[in-house]
Computed example of a mutant assay.
Amino acid sequence: MHGPHDVGGRDGLGPVIEVFKDPDQPPFRYAFEGRMHALTAMAIAGGAFNLDEQRHGIELMPWAHYTDSNYYEHWLYSVEKLLNDKGIITHEEIDERVRTQPAGSFTANPPKPETLSPLADKMMGVLWAGTPHNVDTDQEPRFAPGDTVRVRNINVASHNRLPGYLNRAVGVVHWHHGAHHDPAASAHRQVDEPNHLYTVRFDKADLWGSEVADGQGDFHLYADLFESYLDPADA
Results as ranks from 00 to 15, higher is better:
A45H: 11
A45D: 15
A45V: 12
G47I: 08
G47H: 06
A48R: 14
L51R: 13
D52K: 07
D52P: 05
Q54R: 11
Q54V: 08
R55C: 04
I58K: 00
E59R: 10
E59H: 12
M61N: 08
W63P: 07
W63L: 08
A64N: 13
H65G: 02
H65R: 13
H65F: 09
Y66A: 13
T67L: 11
S69F: 05
N70S: 09
Y72N: 01
W75A: 04
E80Q: 09
K81D: 08
L82S: 04
L83R: 04
D85G: 11
K86R: 15
G87K: 03
G87P: 10
I88V: 11
I88Q: 01
I88K: 04
T90Q: 00
E92A: 12
E93N: 11
I94L: 10
I94W: 03
R97Y: 03
R97W: 08
V98E: 05
V98M: 07
V98S: 00
R99H: 13
R99S: 15
T100G: 00
P102F: 11
P102T: 14
A103T: 15
A103S: 15
G104S: 02
F106W: 08
F106Y: 14
F106P: 00
T107K: 14
T107Y: 08
A108Y: 12
N109P: 03
P110V: 14
P111T: 11
P111Q: 07
K112L: 13
P113W: 07
T115R: 06
P118A: 06
P118W: 06
L119V: 15
L119T: 09
A120H: 09
D121Y: 05
D121A: 13
